[in-house]
């Protein structure tokens, strides 16, 4: 793991946060703020040029992430952050495009866009805050909600299977896939930083906590309960290799799951070559 330079919080705030934007809208105990803090630390660690960095979000609690930061930012409709990000990146490949999304935004309404961006291997960094619920609309189940969960639209228990979003992204062709958890915030910074550094489509799923809309209906009423749950239900990539499929059942593997270095296979790089080919009359 790369070493993280520790800047003072006040320095980070002055540099990346919009003045007078606090307090946030998020509920007490919510994990999204932790993800934002790690994301900003990661941006700072990588040393992205401020003017060249764009934050693109959709709808949901995670859609508001942009609102506290002072980057060029897009806050649009539900599920469509990724195609907007694709347009920005392709139009201006110099931009660093970071797309924080919730589990519903990214895996349900926007799921198609996620897999196709992964397939194209376009250099954007998708950060999925997976808090197992549609928090903004009051706690419905999402495609990432564990089976059996009680939610406002599964009052008798959720009978649907959940996606393994990391496996989905990997299968679709993402060249950087990682999973972290808010419990491991230091690791989260490294995972996001590596995702940003990576030339190609990056997906970082962060398991986060929503005590108000999810936890309290599922016998995990506080942030502490949910963070303990994270600790008990996550295993590192290294440890997972020593475990049987039975032992891994219901566990979340955290760490870097995919990291394929092939910058020339990234979409905008391919596009530049396409333009050269087209300019030379179609001959390569």
């Amino acid at each position: 793991m790369a070493k993280v330079a520790i800047k003072k919080t006040s320095e980070i705030r002055a540099e990346y946060y919009r003045p007078n934007s606090f307090p946030t809208i998020w509920c007490p105990g919510c994990g999204i703020g932790n993800v934002v803090a790690s994301m900003v630390r990661a941006i700072d660690t990588v040393g992205l040029k401020h003017d060249d960095t764009v934050v693109v979000t959709g709808i949901g609690c995670s859609g508001i992430i942009y609102n506290y930061l002072n980057f060029d930012a897009y806050h649009g409709i539900h599920g469509r952050a990724i195609p907007v990000a694709v347009g920005l990146k392709l139009a201006n490949p110099r931009l660093n495009v970071i797309v924080p999304m919730g589990d519903g935004d990214s895996s349900a309404i926007g799921g198609n866009h996620l897999i196709h961006a992964a397939r194209r291997n376009i250099d954007i960094t998708a950060i999925v805050v997976n808090n197992s619920t549609y928090g903004n609309t009051g706690g419905q189940f999402s495609p990432l909600t564990p089976t059996g969960s009680i939610t406002t639209t599964s009052p008798f228990g959720n009978i649907e299977n959940s996606f393994d979003l990391c496996e989905l992204a990997k299968g679709a062709g993402a060249t950087y896939v990682a999973r972290g958890a808010t419990y491991y915030s230091r690791q989260m910074i490294d995972l996001i930083a590596n995702g940003i550094r990576h030339k190609g489509f990056s997906l970082i799923e962060v398991i986060s906590q929503c005590p108000v809309q999810y936890g309290r209906r599922n016998k995990l009423p506080t942030a502490v309960d949910l963070l303990k749950w994270q600790k008990e239900n996550t295993v590192s990539v290294t440890r997972a290799k020593t475990m049987s499929p039975e032992e891994l059942k219901g566990k979340f593997i955290i760490g870097e799951l995919v990291n394929i270095e092939a910058p020339d296979q990234e979409y905008t790089a391919r596009y530049e070559r396409l333009i050269e080919k087209a300019r030379s009359g179609g001959k390569s």
Binding site: V56, P83, V86, G87, N92, L95
Partner: peptide
């Protein structure tokens, strides 16, 4: 839907 949102993104890029 992706097509429309994609051109919105590209327009924002100028």
């Amino acid at each position: 839907i992706a097509s429309m949102n994609c051109i919105i993104g590209a327009s924002l890029a100028g």
